[in-house]
Amino acid sequence: MADFIKHPEVPLPDLDPAPSFSEEELVFTEEERAQIAEYVRRYPTADGAVMRALWLAQEKFGFLPPEVIRLVAETLGIPYAQAYGVATFYTQYYKQKKGRYVLDVCTSFSCQLCGGYDMLHYLEEQLGIQKGETTEDGLFTLQEVECLGACGSAPMLQVTNGPYVFNLTPEKLDALLEDLRAGKMPAFTSVTLPQDEDEMGGNRRSDAPQSAVYETPPVARTLE
C-alpha cells in the first residue's frame, strides 16, 4: 500500500487475456453444481450466492481468471459483469495465479507497532522474494495486507485465506515455513471472547495455555 501512496497508479486489467484453463477443465462436477444450487437456495435471488460460488471456484481452480468468473456467473445465471465486479472488489479472491501458500502479513497499525514490517522483511529474506512475489518453486506467495482484525495478537499473518498465525517471532516463522514445506497447515486457533474468559482460566487465546494471564481491560459501564 505504501507504494500506492508514492505512485498512485491503477493499472488497466488485461482486457483480452489468454485463458489459463481449457474448455475441458472449465466445468463444475455434479457435486459442485449441487453445492452451488444449495448456496442459491439460501438466498432470495441467485446473485446472493455469488461470493460462495466464487469461493468454491477458487478452491477448485486455485485462482479466478476471467474464464472461471464467467463459468461461475453462467452457473448461477447472473451477469458475468456483476460476478467480475464482485471478484475484483475482494482482495481475498485471487485474480492471478498464486503460490500454494499465500502468506498475508499484516502491517496495519497494531501489527506495525509490534513488528509487522520486521516479520515481513524476515520472510522476504528467508524466501528470497519481495512482497507481492511468488517463490520459484511455486510454494509461497508473500503479501502485505491491511488489518485482518487480530490486533490483540499482533503481529500476525494469515495463510491462504485460512488459519491465522499469531504473535509472530522469527522462530515461529521458521517453524511455520518448515511445516508448510512439509505440507502441514497450521492448526486453526480460536481467540476466546471476553465473556468466555472464566472458563479459559483468564486466557484470551486457546493456543497459549501457558502464557501469562490476560488482564481484561475494564468494561465500559454503558455495555453492562
Binding site: 491503477v10 486489467p13 482486457l15 483480452d16 464467467r70 458475468y80 459483469a81 467480475y84
Partner: peptide, 21 residues
C-alpha cells in the same frame, strides 16, 4: 446488456467491461 460493472474498490474503482466483453 449488462456489459458494464464497477471494478476494484476504494480509490481504485471505475467502470469497465469485464475481460473479453
Amino acid at each position: 446488456s449488462r456489459q458494464l460493472t464497477i471494478i476494484e474498490r476504494g480509490v481504485r474503482n471505475y467502470p469497465i467491461t469485464p475481460p473479453g466483453v
